[in-house]
Amino acid sequence: MSEVIEKVRLKFERIKPKVGARILNSKEEILSGEISDEIRGLLEEVGVLVFPKIDFTDEEQVAFTNSVGGTAQEMRGESVFKISLDRNVNKEAVEYLKGSLFWHVDGTMNRMPIRGSVLSSKVLPTWGGNTEFANCYTAYEDLSQETKDRLENLRVIHSMWNSQLYHCPEPTLAQLEDWMSKGEEGKGERELPLVYKHASGRKSLILGNTAERVVGLSARESAKLLHGLREHATSEPYHYAHEWSLGDAVMWDNTGTLHRAMPYDPDCGRMLHRTIIKGDSWG
């Protein structure tokens, strides 16, 4: 009598109707690769996935990231980036990481987008430090058709220096010039579509603190449009705030989801390990 082998199925529960889901499979099932395609599909559907207390090692997190699209190198060429405001850990990146306290999309200076990211909790903060997410797929889909038609072909200039002004509004000239030199080509800015068209046919908004201005609009109209869309996208029912437990992993669709860290004690040693998933094209 032949043995019947049951295929692993994705098990999850929705967090909110328009954003988020918790994955209920075991670590072994997740790392098997058998449900990787289903995870990718669900990620685009809900924007952010929570793996409660999965306790990934760095090696397991890289393996998982590879299974759902491939691990891209971080800014210094590493596979795992340690997110901490401890200068002994991240001396060169502490000022850059302060921008993560405001709504943003990762990698807007990159030639190729970051398709998604995975964060694992290693050290909890003494207070604060939740990570908030906003589903820009469903936020876009709930806009009126008139608004969608207006946004369809707009382009936005994104710049790193714009994001740094959120936490350092009066930089020195040397600071400003350093920010303006960042990015893969050293230009410090990139023109991106306001409405990102995914291979699946779905569309989402690309917003956040790097969004400096809309091409072809006055500074006044550009600011009103970008801030208004961000306010819409980060409101209920598109918003989810994750309160970290030690060992949690959270994965989000970086081309369809905004995120930010909530304030926390900068000296508490809060530590998250990040891996990023390769993207295809900004379009």
Rank of each mutant, 00 (worst) to 15 (best):
M109Q: 12
V195C: 09
T57F: 04
L97H: 07
T257Q: 02
E231N: 12
N90H: 02
M112W: 03
T71G: 02
I39N: 05
E60G: 11
L207D: 04
L42V: 01
M160W: 14
L24K: 10
A72C: 01
S117P: 01
I114H: 07
Y196F: 15
T147S: 05
L205V: 03
K187I: 00
E221S: 08
W244T: 08
L225H: 10
S159D: 04
E236I: 02
A93S: 12
M262G: 02
L31K: 06
V48M: 10
G228T: 11
K16N: 14
F12L: 11
L43G: 02
E6L: 15
W103M: 03
G188W: 04
L151W: 00
H167L: 00
V48K: 01
R213K: 14
S67L: 13
G216I: 06
P113V: 13
E92K: 12
L49P: 09
V48D: 01
D55F: 15
H104N: 12
K53C: 07
K82E: 09
L154M: 15
E60Y: 08
A72L: 11
I5F: 10
D265P: 01
T255W: 03
G279H: 03
L165A: 11
R155I: 00
M112K: 14
K91E: 14
Y238W: 07
E177F: 06
N162W: 06
K148V: 00
D178I: 05
F102Q: 11
V80R: 00
A261G: 15
E78G: 08
G256R: 01
F102N: 13
P52H: 11
K18A: 05
L97G: 07
S235H: 12
E44D: 05
I23M: 05
S222T: 12
T126N: 08
S163C: 08
M75L: 13
V50H: 14
V118D: 04
I54N: 06
K27E: 05
E34R: 12
